[in-house]
């Protein structure tokens, strides 16, 4: 049986190999993903994001346990940053997910952000496709922090959970800086710590600044203690309620498809230009003239577009 068939049959080793392919060998991955067509679109894709140290891994671990209790299979993509200096990474999220290691119904993959070739967004979204095709009912994506690429991922998941902790003046500040918009469900984790009520109230206050028309989703703010599992069932319930709105899910999936499609087109368009000698010469000339200040970037692009179309 070849790799694609083994992925479709749900074989863990094949899933592992296939994810390495989408991370490192785009051409081979393209061939592989072609076999997945028709088997994709069944998985519930859930993003979990928040500042470092708020308990994302522990929460993901508990969410996986909750979905397992409901009889669903789970794939987890745990993302940590690549060091920009060495290109290496320490991927440590598994430490908090050990209970699932012998459960065939939970597959955990640690991924680094890379930072080249579309990095996080391209490999992560392709890994989601693989887990989906492999029959995982739920795919949990744990992002590394609150960078722009992660916002993109979260925005295109079927549902996004934004996690913070009490008394993290910083946590709430960070949320103001952009991730407030992406949360479909907000979680104040470590509810046993002082200030949990206040943190939840602050988020509620920020949410109340938005307008909610009839039938639009107002993100709930929930409190959990992931270390013990307290409050986690309510998070799953909220996520399911949100993702259970068919129009919402369709719209998310459309966004996800469009983002991926335009990314790939952009990438392949540039590759094609660089591939042929003739067009590469055009690029090189434009670079020279731009560097010398003879032409502005817009004019250079207009020229190249005209001469290559």
């Amino acid at each position: 049986m070849d790799l694609a068939d083994r992925v479709l049959a749900g074989d863990q080793r094949a899933i592992a190999r296939a994810i390495s392919l989408v991370e490192n060998e785009p051409d081979a991955a393209a061939g592989l993903l072609r076999h997945m067509a028709g088997r994709i679109g069944h998985a519930r894709v859930i993003g979990v994001t928040g500042a470092p140290g708020v308990g994302k891994s522990t929460l993901v671990d508990r969410l996986a346990a909750e979905y397992r209790r409901m009889g669903r299979t789970v794939g987890i993509l745990a993302i940590d940053p690549t060091s920009p200096i060495s290109g290496g990474a320490i991927l440590g999220d598994r430490v908090r997910m050990q209970r699932h290691v012998f459960d065939e119904g939970v597959y955990v993959r640690s991924m680094a952000t890379h930072g080249r070739l579309g990095g996080l967004s391209h490999a992560t979204s392709d890994a989601v496709l693989i887990l989906d095709a492999a029959g995982r009912d739920v795919v949990l994506i744990e992002t590394a922090g609150v960078g722009q690429a992660e916002v993109d991922i979260a925005r295109t998941a079927d549902a996004s959970i934004v996690v913070t902790i009490p008394d993290a003046g910083d946590g709430v500040q960070a949320m103001k800086a952009g991730i407030m918009e992406i949360g479909d469900v907000f979680v104040v984790n470590k509810l046993d710590r002082p200030g949990a009520e206040r943190a939840a109230a602050e988020i509620e206050e920020m949410l109340s600044l938005r307008e909610y028309g009839e039938g639009t989703w107002r993100p709930p703010v929930l409190k959990t203690r992931a270390a013990t599992g307290e409050g986690v069932a309510a998070v799953v319930e909220a996520v399911e309620r949100f993702a259970g709105q068919p129009a919402e899910t369709r719209e998310r999936r459309r966004t996800r498809a469009r983002t991926r499609l335009t990314d790939l087109l952009r990438q392949q368009f540039v590759e094609r230009l660089e591939h042929s000698e003739e067009t590469r010469k055009l690029l090189d000339e434009a670079v020279e003239r731009m560097a010398a200040g003879e032409i502005d970037p817009y004019a250079a692009v207009a020229e190249i577009m005209e001469r290559t179309s």
Partner: peptide, 30 residues
């Protein structure tokens, strides 16, 4: 840390791992 600094992706699994756990992790992580 040293292997990360040498450009490798290091999956750190923590304390008290049994051989069974380690092999399963190696499989899932390729």
């Amino acid at each position: 840390r040293a292997l990360r600094d040498a450009g490798m992706e290091v999956i750190y699994t923590g304390l008290r791992q049994t051989p069974e756990q380690i092999v399963e992790v190696a499989l899932q992580e390729d």
